[in-house]
């Protein structure tokens, strides 16, 4: 009994150490896009095996690739005040252990996905590959455009979910993927404006440091419009009824308004508000897809 208790305490301690390493909120948001993509196909929610498989493969592959990203970036994380307390940068977790866990989780997630459907597995693998190899290792320290090209990784979960639901890559899936791709600059550029000095100290090129704040704000506004348009057209393509589309239009208007406000009256607070709202916007859009998928099947 004592051994079991000690084992549980050790497990809990480990879990607490790894939680910041998998960026729980970011992983949760990406998993929600995968779920939204799956439910956009209006698949039966009572197919628990597929739904569970989807969630496990997404959580494992996204968490695994996030750990590998942090493993690779632990040197620059140790330089930036915002990240120097992260488990790897601060030495709470040994790099070798994190590498092992990251690889194991990623392989586990991709493996389950391949077993469920080869095409679904390929897209999950592409997500991991783009995140680790293209974004983290190849582009992140070379060019600020890494968030656009590497951003494809962020669009893979929603495309994978859609593919698992419909069995093929269709135009709705591509639009959903594009909506995430266009949403990422809003999310990351507002963040890099807030922590501009941190990134500069670590030598990571960002849009604010390369093109300046005004140009970055224009790009943020532009990407917000493109993201909202993509998700709106995709939602229409999915067959969402007007009630859901109205909510999407309202939420998109809020996004445009904040982006315009950030452009016309730039301030730290507006920038932070846009960053937070963009995340809520994406989460709400995915929730709408899920609710629509559930109610459309059960009614």
């Amino acid at each position: 009994m004592d051994n079991f208790y000690m084992w549980m305490v050790a497990l809990r301690t480990k879990f607490r150490a790894y939680w910041p390493l998998v960026k729980g909120l970011q992983t949760g948001l990406l998993v929600s896009t995968g779920l939204g993509g799956y439910m956009s196909a209006r698949c039966p929610i009572h197919d628990w095996e597929t739904l569970t498989g989807l969630l496990i493969s997404l959580v494992a592959s996204i968490s695994g690739s996030t750990i590998l990203n942090m493993w690779w970036d632990r040197d620059i994380d140790a330089i930036m005040p915002r990240t120097l307390n992260r488990p790897l940068a601060s030495g709470q977790i040994q790099p070798g252990e994190a590498l092992w866990v990251g690889v194991a989780l990623s392989l586990f997630g991709v493996g389950i996905a391949v077993l469920m459907s080869p095409l679904f597995g390929l897209i999950i693998f592409a997500g991991v590959f783009f995140n680790i190899v293209v974004y983290t290792i190849w582009l992140k320290r070379r060019t600020c455009w890494s968030i656009i090209i590497g951003g494809l990784a962020g669009g893979m979960p929603i495309l994978a979910g859609r593919v698992l639901g419909v069995g093929a890559i269709d135009w709705v899936g591509i639009l959903l993927c594009l909506s995430i791709l266009f949403w990422i600059p809003t999310h990351i550029m507002t963040f890099s404006m807030k922590y501009h000095a941190d990134y500069k100290a670590a030598g990571v090129p960002t849009f604010p440091s390369t093109y300046g704040f005004p140009t970055t704000r224009v790009l943020v506004a532009f990407s917000s419009v493109l993201a909202a348009l993509s998700i709106g057209i995709a939602a229409y393509g999915v067959g969402m009824t007007w009630g859901y589309l109205r909510v999407l239009i309202v939420l998109s208007t809020g996004l445009f308004a904040l982006a315009a406000s950030s452009l016309l009256r730039p301030s730290e607070r507006t920038n932070f508000g846009l960053f937070k709202y963009a995340s809520l916007y994406m989460l709400s859009s995915m929730l709408l897809m899920v609710i629509f998928g559930v109610l459309d099947v059960t009614t």
């Binding site: 309202v250 939420l251 809020g254 937070k276």
Partner: peptide, 17 residues
């Protein structure tokens, strides 16, 4: 839609900011 939309977005902005 405009009326309830203002309520929805305002609630979110109040929560955030």
């Amino acid at each position: 839609t405009v009326a309830f939309g203002i309520l929805l977005v305002s609630s979110l902005l109040l929560i955030i900011l």
